[in-house]
Nucleic acid binder design. Sequence first.
DNA 1: CATGAATGAGCATTCATTCAT
DNA 2: GATGAATGAATGCTCATTCAT
Lengths: 203, 203, 203, 203
Amino acid sequence: MISAELSKREIIMNASIKVFAAKGYHSCRTLDISKEAGVAYGSLYQYFKSKDDILSSIYRDNWNFLLQRMDLLNQTEKSPAIRIIKIFDFIFRNYEQNPDLIKVMIMEVPKLNQFYGKEHQELYFRFFSGLAEIIAEGQKKDLLSKDISPIIAAFVIYGAADNTIRQYVYNTDFESMHFPLEEAKNQIINYFIPGYLIKKTGK
Amino acid sequence: MISAELSKREIIMNASIKVFAAKGYHSCRTLDISKEAGVAYGSLYQYFKSKDDILSSIYRDNWNFLLQRMDLLNQTEKSPAIRIIKIFDFIFRNYEQNPDLIKVMIMEVPKLNQFYGKEHQELYFRFFSGLAEIIAEGQKKDLLSKDISPIIAAFVIYGAADNTIRQYVYNTDFESMHFPLEEAKNQIINYFIPGYLIKKTGK
Amino acid sequence: MISAELSKREIIMNASIKVFAAKGYHSCRTLDISKEAGVAYGSLYQYFKSKDDILSSIYRDNWNFLLQRMDLLNQTEKSPAIRIIKIFDFIFRNYEQNPDLIKVMIMEVPKLNQFYGKEHQELYFRFFSGLAEIIAEGQKKDLLSKDISPIIAAFVIYGAADNTIRQYVYNTDFESMHFPLEEAKNQIINYFIPGYLIKKTGK
Amino acid sequence: MISAELSKREIIMNASIKVFAAKGYHSCRTLDISKEAGVAYGSLYQYFKSKDDILSSIYRDNWNFLLQRMDLLNQTEKSPAIRIIKIFDFIFRNYEQNPDLIKVMIMEVPKLNQFYGKEHQELYFRFFSGLAEIIAEGQKKDLLSKDISPIIAAFVIYGAADNTIRQYVYNTDFESMHFPLEEAKNQIINYFIPGYLIKKTGK
DNA sequence: CATGAATGAGCATTCATTCAT
DNA sequence: GATGAATGAATGCTCATTCAT
């Protein structure tokens, strides 16, 4: 059996995600985490430097995962447009598979940026730069509109996805009032991306 | 003399914005706020129930201000597209005039949503509903593309603006590496909005 | 009209008695007192040095009142035994007429003794000394038992009255479970005093 | 080895008794307690919920100790009169062995808001009910005077002891001016109890 | 005399982290 | 590695008192 067991480190991280999402980073105790993880709270410090470090690790791991995904796509998928759509898709699916994780990523980021500013900016930078490169490539190949600079396009695309998910996370009412996130994602991908990025061919 | 004096409440709020932006909500002491405001420690509690209440008030006031702006626009501006552009414009200008305020709004809001969920969701709801109504109106008048549901379009538009500003706030390097926020705004307004919202006229 | 109006000082004291009895000295704010009294809270300090001073004044006034009563009795009533009974009677009636006052006297005395120890010990001393003198007089006149020293007899008599009232104040259940304070008082006066103080005549 | 070591909880309680007696409940810091106990600041909160809880626990423990004593006496001592005398004796000895404790019980406990709560009234109730039962038993056996209701007799007896001790606690002058507490106790037991409780046999 | 905004000293409590077992 | 008792720094808030009006 492959990866039959989660390492204790992973158990602690998963417990933390659950607890952070439920109570918020500041409102939960390290005790809450250790209870959820089923370990002694002294043990947390054998796997993480501090409570902050747990949050930071969650953040780092997941952002790196997205970056890896993007690297992989760059190697396997020719079409820049499809790559963008797949990144989109990945971000939304991520939320649906682990909403707690996204809650943590969205809610606790500010805290992190204060203390790990440089390190985290680096991750942001690589993501947006990478996305911008894909867009630039599409523009060069005359597949995407050149009317917007790639980096701004990257901000806009990610912002659209992020804010939509954000509203589903925060405003639980929206969901039932309107439609499932899946459909929201499709609307954005189907209508926004093509209309915006794909070159509005002269004719 | 116009607005000769700020009320003590306003003085405290402005000082708080400055301090929250500089040190972060959690890292600053209430003492820092009172010093910055030049008022006695205890005076904070004559105007606000708690430290949380200060942050919450900043959030509420400014979100309400945006809502008022939107109401005004609805009464004075016929064109839905121009209304959207002006809201956009307002959001960006807001940041340029008071970056500290936006830092606070963006960085510390998640904290609030945990404690003031209902109240703040209401403000979000009104904003996005309002924006969606403008879009729906444009669709009805056949001015905007009907290919996307108004509420999702609202999420996307705001997310684009918010995330772009966010990157300028967090990643100070981006600015110098690329171009001023003003230009970013124009790119988004000029290329994104028309391409996305304005009806892709048949044929 | 005689004493048509209470002085503001008296109004504040009466309000304080009510508030202290209801919430306890430590749990009430000077604001509570001023509201109850219907004056601005700054005004309290025109009539009293401090919050402590209000409590201390209540204590002093009422203890002095009892001492005056005792002095008067010493001048008008020949029989030591009847004098004692009348002091008893006065203490119990006092409670029935103003239970709040007694609550304050009983509940908040400890607080006072810390800060006004000397001053208040003096009042205690005069009361118990006075009571002891009455008893001694009765013993000298061969009317009261000489088997107990007067000062201890004074402690016992007052303790009996005080503790009985205390239980009625604290343990509101006792009252309904048994009988009214009036009857308790009579039982103590009728059976206790004679049995104890009045000389058990040899024959 | 018998009771070789005090538990940390007991160490903290004993230190608290000392500090509360010396400075008063409200005037001492939790820091004072921890210093006196020789434990870390935060350790107080591993054994007690709050500062209030420490005082409340002192009260509860000691009152329960008295109640146990009474239960034991009821099982081992036939004579109701002697049982009462022994309870008396116990109360006085308690003070002499640990005056600080009695100071706290008398002076500081009433300051607790909880003091007026159900839990504390319950302890009072059980004590006075128990004492009343002993008296009632004596009356039934025709050993004690039936001229007073048992519960009032209980109030009177305890009040006599309590107030006498109280004067020794508060008014340190009394002691030297008169005689040691031991003698006061004997006077009360020897003259008061018999004269009052023991049936004044007809004739 | 009356007012109540302003003041700021004072304090209980929390909780991340350590470390002896 | 695992444990959890011990630690103590850190801080928001209260509220009696003052004093300018």
